[in-house]
Amino acid sequence: MAEDDTPRDALQRDNETLRAQNEQLRRELAELRQALARREPDTSSLPGSPQRAACPDADGELRREHAMRRAVDLLRAVVEAAPMMFFVKDTEGRYILANGYFLRWTGLTWDQVAGKTDHELFPRDRADVFLASDSETLTTGRTIEWEESAVLPDGQLRHFALLKFPIRDASGELQGICGISTDISSSRRAEEENRLLQAEIIRAQEMSLRALSTPLMPIAKGVIVMPLIGNVDQRRAQRVLETLLTGIVTHEAGKVILDITGVPVVDTEVANALLKTAQAVKLLGATVILTGIQPKIAQTLVDLGADLSSIITRATLESGIAHVLDR
């Protein structure tokens, strides 16, 4: 019986050994699956396995590749959708990229533009301008900006803001130039309208100031009053004369009261202006009554030797009005 038990015992021991090995293999397989799930392959712990370098992260590379393609597609979509002319030329001046906006404004197709130079596409004078800016960009390696106007194929005058800059590869080697041209016609029109409006406002303000500085008031039939306030220079004196003469004709006035109560200083220039005004009014058949002469001003007029004999004077505006209304 002992001899019969020996093979069975040996077989049992072999089975236990196999079970232990299988259990070990299961554990190692589970560890390997966990490592793969973490995308960190590592087989160096397997018995008898030689040391190997880690495998590339294939999924990560695919994601980066996909992201790069998406970025390129987005950039292409932005360039195509941008509301501005966008183009790229190589160092020989040949077009290697142009967006739809550029093609629409130039009235050309990409097949007509691709690989061509400006002299093959545009009138010589325009092409010379483009070539000069290209040369400056390539020579200096700097970005240049300027504005220009052009009549496009649709016959409209347009204004553009242009920008050109050099393009280099990863090693810094010059590959060509990129140009961006923005239509600023609407801005220019708005600026011109704004300028015209400002000029109109200035003219209106000047007219208001003139009216304020030389107010003319009819107070009775054939009688007008002009009160002056502030300094009177040569320019204002001329406005006073023009306003008075126009007012005399408009109101058929025979009496003009010129009140200088609010004039702080009367010098030779003002005195001469008053005399000139009186003479001009007299030529139209009207009479000037000068009111509001302060003592200091009266002294100045005497010192200046001003001849006011042809002008009726009164101390106050009220007395001047009473004078003309009593007659």
Rank of each mutant, 00 (worst) to 15 (best):
E3N: 13
D5F: 09
P7V: 14
L11D: 09
T17F: 06
R26P: 00
E28Q: 13
A35P: 04
L36E: 13
R38E: 12
R52Y: 12
C55T: 11
A58G: 09
A58Y: 12
A58W: 14
G60W: 08
E61N: 10
R64F: 05
E65V: 09
A67N: 07
A71N: 11
A71I: 12
V78G: 12
V78I: 15
V78F: 15
V78W: 10
K89E: 07
D90T: 07
Y95I: 05
I96S: 10
I96Y: 01
A98M: 07
N99P: 05
G100T: 11
F102M: 10
R104K: 13
R104G: 08
W105D: 04
G107S: 07
G107A: 02
Q112K: 10
A114M: 11
K116H: 11
K116D: 08
K116Y: 06
T117G: 06
E120L: 10
F122S: 03
P123H: 00
P123N: 02
R126S: 14
V129M: 12
V129H: 13
L131W: 07
A132G: 08
E136A: 12
T137E: 01
L138W: 00
T139M: 09
T139L: 11
T139W: 06
T140I: 02
T143V: 13
T143E: 14
A161K: 04
L163S: 13
I167N: 07
R168T: 10
D169Q: 12
G172T: 07
E173F: 03
C178L: 10
G179Y: 04
S185E: 00
S186V: 09
A190I: 00
A190N: 03
E192V: 03
E192P: 00
R203A: 15
R203N: 13
A204L: 13
E206G: 13
M207W: 13
A211F: 04
T214I: 01
T214L: 00
P215T: 02
L216E: 03
L216A: 03
I219V: 15
A220M: 03
K221L: 09
K221I: 02
I224E: 02
V225N: 04
G230K: 03
V232F: 02
Q234V: 10
R235G: 09
R236C: 06
R239V: 07
L241Q: 14
E242V: 06
E242A: 09
E242P: 06
G247C: 08
G247E: 00
E252T: 10
E252M: 12
A253L: 04
G254R: 14
I260N: 00
V263E: 01
V265I: 12
V265R: 00
V266C: 02
V270W: 05
A273M: 08
L275E: 06
L275T: 14
V281F: 00
V281C: 01
V281H: 01
G285A: 09
T287E: 15
G292N: 04
P295I: 04
K296S: 15
A298W: 05
Q299C: 01
L304F: 06
G305T: 09
D307H: 09
S310H: 05
A315D: 02
A315R: 12
L317Q: 08
L317Y: 08
S319H: 15
L325K: 09
